[in-house]
Simulated scan of single mutants.
Amino acid sequence: MVKEKGRKLVAQNKKARHDYHIDDTWEAGMVLMGTEVKSLRAGRASLVDGFAEIDDHEVWLHGVHIPEYTQGTWTNHSARRKRKLLLNRAEIDKLERKVGDKGYTIVPLSIYFNDGRAKVEIALARGKKSWDKRHSLAERQATRETQQAIGRRLKGMD
């Protein structure tokens, strides 16, 4: 059997980048059951309500929806069970110190396969206020308009 190479994206949490200021990111492995891996390989997952918490010096992923595998039998998994994340002790300690600060949380940004192994990208994040969201939308709109104007200028349409 040929070993997989490269990175294959399964699910992405675009809303997290809108709702949070992302301070730092980590790549973590996940402890999964066989039917969960098969469901992920089919490209089925949702990170919308996902978050991670540290319990007894272990990082657990909650609220991530990996639907049941359709060809699975009685060995199938529950869709929203909590899953253990695999990180180094130093990374867990750093996360634990930061989450102790007020306003910080751990959110999953994406689930992907890296060389055939399921990984999740988690981020240390602070919640945005409504004016921060409006400000970032206005910034994105302004950069889009300037890029369009530059493009029109280069094409000689202006």
Score class of each variant (00 low, 15 high):
Y104I: 09
D115T: 06
K94L: 08
S110I: 01
D115V: 08
S78T: 15
Y69H: 15
I106K: 03
L109Y: 06
K98E: 14
N114G: 06
K119T: 10
A118H: 03
L87K: 00
N114K: 15
K84P: 01
L87W: 02
T105R: 10
T70E: 15
L109V: 09
K94P: 02
L86H: 00
K82V: 09
V107I: 15
A79I: 05
Q71A: 11
T75P: 00
P108W: 05
R89D: 13
S78H: 12
R97H: 07
I92H: 00
N88W: 02
L85S: 01
Y69E: 15
K94E: 12
N88R: 11
T70P: 05
K94W: 01
A90G: 12
V99S: 03
R83E: 06
P108S: 09
L85T: 03
T73C: 01
K84W: 01
K119P: 03
N76C: 10
Q71D: 13
E96Q: 13
Q71K: 09
S110G: 02
E91K: 07
W74P: 02
V120C: 04
L109P: 09
R89W: 04
R117H: 13
T73N: 14
R80K: 13
K102A: 14
S78C: 07
K82P: 09
K84D: 00
Y112T: 03
T73E: 13
H77Q: 04
K84L: 10
G116T: 13
G116M: 13
N88I: 00
K102I: 12
T70I: 11
R97C: 02
K84T: 03
H77K: 03
R80D: 07
L95F: 09
F113S: 10
R83K: 13
G100S: 12
T105I: 09
A118N: 01
K98A: 15
V107Q: 07
D101I: 00
E91A: 13
K84A: 05
G72K: 06
V107M: 09
R83W: 04
R83H: 05
D101T: 05
I122V: 15
G100H: 11
V120A: 02
L109G: 06
Y69V: 06
I122L: 11
F113D: 11
A79E: 14
A118T: 09
D93W: 04
R97D: 12
H77L: 05
V120Y: 01
Q71W: 02
I111D: 08
A79H: 07
S78G: 09
L85Q: 01
Y69P: 08
R97A: 14
N88K: 14
N88T: 10
R89S: 12
I122Q: 06
R89G: 00
D93M: 04
I92N: 02
T75H: 07
L85P: 04
Y104L: 08
S78W: 05
T70Y: 08
L95D: 05
I106A: 06
N114W: 10
R81S: 15
Y104E: 07
A79L: 01
H77Y: 04
L87E: 03
R81F: 07
E96K: 12
H77D: 04
V120L: 02
I122S: 08
V99D: 00
E91L: 00
T73A: 11
E96Y: 04
K119L: 08
K102P: 10
R83L: 15
N114H: 14
K98I: 05
S110M: 12
K102N: 12
N114E: 15
